[in-house]
Write a protein that binds this DNA or RNA. Sequence first.
RNA 1: UGGGAGAUCGUCUAGCGGUAGGACGCGUGGCUCUGGACCACGUAGCGGGGGUUCGAAUCCUCCUCUCCCAGCCA
Length: 561
Amino acid sequence: MSRNEPAKPSNFIREMVLEDLRTNRFGGKVITRFPPEPNGYLHIGHAKAICIDFGLAQEFGGRCHLRYDDTNPTKESTEYVEAIKADVRWLGFDWGEHLYYASDYFEQLYEWAAELIKAGRAYVDDLPQEEMREYRGTLTEPGRESPSRNRSVDANLDLFKRMRDGEFEEGTKTLRAKIDMASGNLNLRDPVMYRIRKVPHHRTGEKWCIYPTYDWAHGQSDSIEGITHSICTLEYEDHRPLYDWFLAELGIHHPQQIEFARLSLSHTVMSKRMLLELVEEGRVSGWDDPRMPTLAGLRRRGYTPEAIRDFCERIGVAKADNVVDIAHLEHCLRDDLNRRAERRMAVLRPLRLVIENYPEGKVEEMEGVNNPEDSSMGTRRLPFSRILYIEQDDFRESPPPKYFRLAPGAEVRLRYAYIVKCTGVLKERSTGEIVEVRCTYDPATIGGDAKGRKVKGTIHWVSAAHAVEAEVRLYDHLFLKPRPDEEEDWKTCLNPDSLQVLTGCKLEPSLKGDAPGSRYQFERQGYFCVDSKDSRPGHPVFNRTVGLRDTWAKIERAEGG
RNA sequence: UGGGAGAUCGUCUAGCGGUAGGACGCGUGGCUCUGGACCACGUAGCGGGGGUUCGAAUCCUCCUCUCCCAGCCA
């Protein structure tokens, strides 16, 4: 409608769906699914897939199923099932009644497999694993047909039944599709449909000892659920011919598989293997360590689902390999938190500031706005007194050029309070360390009104007598290099300062006893949240979610400071 | 050297034969009781060679480079 509105960015998947809608290919329906294997935690890469799967369904008035691809009982557990549900919900999506498990379809899958056997399209193979590999050939040489390949239908049926009945040991038999051992696509060289695993399944228990492979289970599960668009990542591209083959042979509802490029993020790793290694070696405190790219980690770090969804929208969807700069994610976060987080004052590295001409014992209450972006968020009272804490960084004995903060003889505004002028410092005799800054205040400037004076700097403060003590954890990128997995040894570029723990931080009293997860902007510093695991009454712990943009730090860095 | 896919500002992404646009980042300026936010401006790109066309990022062709596949993982 409005001509200035930039066109909503589309992507190739949306356009394919639109085209299918136009041609009425699936009767006007859009049914997608998010199909995690319950064998690990979801990360930001999954969030992209979730946003695409659920987002498309939402957009076109369809629905998206949550379906667990639980075909490999040796790796899966209900613990992951629950964690994944929680993460998807937290991200803001709802599968309604449509929670499914591939394991619900085991019986149907078995029947269809028998059907393929009867059609001469599948056979029981005796080849052990290593031999099967040899028979498969290589990327450049065709494979050879297994000696079992031309068994009779009856023999195959009988053997298959006995596989199910547990007559054979693990690894001694498989059911394979009979396709083409010479295909250039290795997936078509008689792929395995069933393998024997004499292990209980987290849902079917002891009922089965043969389990379908991904290739055999996935497309058929999609079909059963009436999925129209089966969206997955690029590595499944050459599985599509097999996906299509099974469905065509069975003559059942045939969804469209569409592949997109998975998300990579700079300054972190996303592979399950690497994340697991970080956890197991204690490089991080767990899957929900705030430095982890897992949804659990991001949540604990203080990320909002809105910011993550916005990010997924902004990065787009395409087929080219990509690595998105983590700064992009952080931008989306700040953008969201700036609008929603209440402001607070907190001194992370305290330095005593004594106002020499302010009466001892006097306490005034200053009014601070909770969010300058949204006046409906109200105001709060801040106790002010003679002895305050300010940030160590906000005082320099010999200030560099363009330093707007406190320095001997300089004036600065104490946010929401008074203009003060520095009169001197107290140092620790032996070390020369500055332990206290002295100043005088101008009573006429109450509330921070500079009365027409040009006071360039405004700093935050906390009244010493009223301060709440807290531990603050400063998090930074987990890796120093943008692409750790491209280093000789990815762990050599782990950021040794990815976590800095500060104790004895001084918070304004309104922060006392806040609920875990509460998010704030600590003015001039960044966004912080109450840690959901370690914070407790009497010992608050805050996590830095992300810092504010810091132009001054940039200037200092540029000048070699 | 088999099969599949891909290549557009530093990064992500649009473009569908008609002026290469947006976002992030970066830079400059403005504004500001957060050196935040916000506003304005700027920076910078079609992998290469041929061809078709009045006109090519887009169509054809050859080449180069990158990614995926040899699990009874997903």
